[in-house]
Amino acid sequence: MIVFVRFNSSHGFPVEVDSDTSIFQLKEVVAKRQGVPADQLRVIFAGKELRNDWTVQNCDLDQQSIVHIVQRPWRKGQEMNATGGDDPRNAAGGCEREPQSLTRVDLSSSVLPGDSVGLAVILHTDSRKDSPPAGSPAGRSIYNSFYVYCKGPCQRVQPGKLRVQCSTCRQATLTLTQGPSCWDDVLIPNRMSGECQSPHCPGTSAEFFFKCGAHPTSDKETSVALHLIATNSRNITCITCTDVRSPVLVFQCNSRHVICLDCFHLYCVTRLNDRQFVHDPQLGYSLPCVAGCPNSLIKELHHFRILGEEQYNRYQQYGAEECVLQMGGVLCPRPGCGAGLLPEPDQRKVTCEGGNGLGCGFAFCRECKEAYHEGECSAVFEASGTTTQAYRVDERAAEQARWEAASKETIKKTTKPCPRCHVPVEKNGGCMHMKCPQPQCRLEWCWNCGCEWNRVCMGDHWFDV
């Protein structure tokens, strides 16, 4: 396979590697080409510095992935760790964990309700045991953590790749202090920090972006993250068709209702045909949960890209028209025109101005929308079919299609509260000796007794199943 190397943020060049090629071997190839010592090179990928003893497969490097290699003399205490030698983080029983690669970060837990604080980093599902597709590297999971809308060759929703760059020099040479644990960490600028490894760059702020994971991409090709779309790892039924499908869209209502993408497309087109989208002054033209839940309008309007190009163009047109109407304007009634106009409040005669090729020149009556006339309008008909009709959803289907309910059931079956801080902690095999993952707590306690870890627990039921 081919990976592209950008040395000291210059133009990239291809390097041929195998899945079992080590990072140090990659350094040696680059060092020979650039005429520099291999031990002064640092390989940066997806916000993480890659260790010498890791392989291309370990690092989730795919065909035509772009890695950054910078030349920086080692500072005291760094060289041993980078070589894969006596790194205290690798000691058996050590409590410190390697910062998780962005290629394996899962933010789907952050669609849980606000009262489930902490689960994004504490609760991990076991539903990723799908067998890898044919042709994928051994052991590589097909679980997708992110979804994007690819405006490039795909023109559809695709699995996405999370990447990070330095907000100062805009190069992907920043190593994160810690990985993101929720969508806010990724979507809110300057929320996460790190250290830029580019020479002479003092940058410390992280800037995240997404790429389409279905095809090789260049540095400049980015895609918009659709953070309401998630892999259906909890096997929730769709609120409309009641099938279990994946991926799904999880509405931001209190129940976190789930809808499959085909039904979401149908829901949007139906509402669009009836012009029953909601115009929100802050958000724009949007839709609420299909069950009509309060405070559930979709905030990231790129989710409506699921409509496809033709329907999305209609959505944008109707949204612009609705904006004009909300501002007190009118639409030209001549067939084939429909231009938005903003006449004076007491102006009865409205002319669709033909300047700049935008208007048709038609003069019409503001009251009856017919060709302009003197005197009273002959008839004014009330528009028919403008009443909002509820999208029919079966109550039982709505009850079963809740992301929140599956989460709470998982928590109930696989977790116990920490005796000190009461945060839910998952036990997935292993011994009875637990350690609270909350940095402010870190209590060592017994899963069996529910009390602080002691010699009695150690001698009596340390390794009970």
Rank of each mutant, 00 (worst) to 15 (best):
residue 6 R to N: 04
residue 8 N to C: 02
residue 11 H to Y: 07
residue 19 S to C: 09
residue 19 S to V: 07
residue 20 D to N: 10
residue 23 I to Y: 01
residue 25 Q to W: 05
residue 26 L to H: 00
residue 28 E to W: 03
residue 30 V to G: 00
residue 31 A to F: 02
residue 36 V to T: 05
residue 36 V to D: 01
residue 53 D to K: 04
residue 55 T to F: 04
residue 66 I to S: 06
residue 74 W to P: 14
residue 82 A to Y: 12
residue 83 T to S: 13
residue 85 G to W: 10
residue 91 A to E: 12
residue 92 A to C: 11
residue 104 R to V: 08
residue 105 V to N: 14
residue 110 S to W: 04
residue 113 P to A: 11
residue 117 V to E: 15
residue 127 S to R: 10
residue 129 K to M: 12
residue 131 S to Y: 10
residue 133 P to C: 10
residue 134 A to W: 07
residue 134 A to E: 12
residue 134 A to T: 10
residue 137 P to H: 12
residue 137 P to Q: 12
residue 139 G to S: 13
residue 141 S to I: 09
residue 142 I to M: 12
residue 143 Y to N: 08
residue 145 S to D: 00
residue 146 F to T: 03
residue 148 V to F: 00
residue 149 Y to N: 02
residue 153 P to A: 10
residue 153 P to D: 10
residue 153 P to E: 12
residue 154 C to F: 00
residue 154 C to P: 00
residue 156 R to H: 08
residue 159 P to C: 06
residue 162 L to V: 08
residue 166 C to R: 00
residue 168 T to H: 08
residue 169 C to A: 01
residue 172 A to M: 11
residue 174 L to A: 04
residue 174 L to S: 04
residue 178 Q to E: 13
residue 180 P to W: 01
residue 184 D to W: 04
residue 186 V to E: 01
residue 190 N to D: 11
residue 194 G to F: 03
residue 194 G to I: 07
residue 197 Q to I: 10
residue 202 P to H: 11
residue 217 T to W: 08
residue 221 E to S: 09
residue 222 T to E: 10
residue 236 I to Y: 04
residue 240 T to W: 09
residue 244 V to Y: 05
residue 247 P to Q: 06
residue 250 V to E: 00
residue 258 V to E: 00
residue 258 V to Y: 01
residue 262 D to T: 04
residue 267 Y to E: 02
residue 272 L to H: 02
residue 288 P to A: 08
residue 289 C to R: 00
residue 289 C to M: 00
residue 290 V to G: 02
residue 290 V to F: 05
residue 292 G to Y: 04
residue 296 S to M: 00
residue 299 K to E: 08
residue 301 L to C: 07
residue 304 F to C: 01
residue 305 R to Y: 06
residue 305 R to C: 07
residue 309 E to M: 11
residue 312 Y to E: 03
residue 313 N to S: 10
residue 314 R to I: 03
residue 315 Y to F: 11
residue 317 Q to P: 01
residue 323 C to L: 13
residue 326 Q to Y: 06
residue 327 M to F: 07
residue 328 G to M: 04
residue 330 V to E: 08
residue 331 L to R: 04
residue 331 L to I: 07
residue 335 P to E: 05
residue 337 C to E: 03
residue 343 P to E: 05
residue 348 R to F: 05
residue 349 K to S: 09
residue 354 G to P: 12
residue 360 C to N: 02
residue 362 F to M: 08
residue 366 R to S: 09
residue 370 E to F: 05
residue 372 Y to M: 10
residue 374 E to I: 06
residue 376 E to P: 10
residue 376 E to M: 10
residue 377 C to V: 02
residue 377 C to Y: 02
residue 382 E to I: 14
residue 387 T to A: 11
residue 390 A to K: 12
residue 405 A to V: 13
residue 407 S to C: 11
residue 408 K to W: 08
residue 409 E to P: 09
residue 415 T to C: 10
residue 416 K to E: 08
residue 443 L to D: 07
residue 443 L to M: 08
residue 444 E to K: 05
residue 445 W to G: 02
residue 449 C to R: 01
residue 451 C to D: 15
residue 455 R to D: 15
residue 455 R to M: 15
residue 457 C to A: 00
residue 458 M to H: 12
residue 464 D to M: 13
residue 464 D to T: 15
